[in-house]
């Protein structure tokens, strides 16, 4: 990771977090579909990033979002989990020939089919953990599933849209 990709990542993260806090925080489609677009930061970090920095970063981002949501620790707990399972999941679904060191797991680099198998389960597990903690003790597993399903659908669709519109495909080396 050179300094240029680092800076562009940093800016992207900043913008996504700002969008999450200012716009998506108040959005709840039909009362069930929330959008966790900031997961895109964790999802599109380069493949070569170390496991420990990844977990720490996920925790930090989650905590920062929590401060604005007043849901102390819930985003942090779920985001940390995503950061933790990401390398294992990447290994499971690695394409034939493995990854390049400079690979980023984004839509434009890896293609739609791969990206779907990569992102959807991660986002769904995030939502599942998030809503399970949030609804803890209020009962209603169906409500949790319902919210998770629609939230992860919305998040995934928005993630695809953002990547199609704003992510540039890197030119060949």
């Amino acid at each position: 990771m050179n300094i240029r990709t680092f800076i562009s990542f940093f800016l992207m993260g900043l913008i996504l977090v700002a969008v999450q806090i200012f716009l998506l925080k108040n959005l709840a489609l039909f009362g069930v579909a929330l959008c966790f677009l900031y997961l895109l930061i964790i999802l599109s970090l380069p493949v070569s990033i170390g496991h420990i920095p990844l977990i720490l970063l996920s925790f930090g981002i989650g905590l920062f979002i929590d401060m604005f949501y007043d849901t102390m620790g819930i985003h942090a707990a779920s985001a940390t989990f995503i950061g933790f399972i990401r390398p294992y999941w990447l290994k499971v679904i690695s394409p034939t020939g493995g990854y390049d060191d400079s690979n980023e797991p984004t839509l434009k680099e890896m293609g739609m089919g791969w990206y779907f198998t990569y992102a959807v389960p991660m986002i769904f597990f995030f939502s599942l953990i998030f809503f399970s903690i949030d609804q803890w003790g209020t009962g209603g597993f169906f409500g949790v599933l319902n919210k998770s399903f629609f939230s992860s659908t919305l998040t995934f669709l928005l993630a695809i849209l953002v990547q199609l519109l704003f992510f540039k495909k890197r030119r060949g080396i």
Partner: peptide, 26 residues
């Protein structure tokens, strides 16, 4: 590290949840 951070997060959730509890970051 993962377990440690999750414990920290859960501790925050619990300490923030009691209606009278002193919340820190919010």
């Amino acid at each position: 590290l993962f377990v440690l951070l999750e414990v920290v997060a859960v501790w925050m959730i619990v300490s923030n949840n009691s209606p009278q509890g002193a919340a820190f970051f919010n």
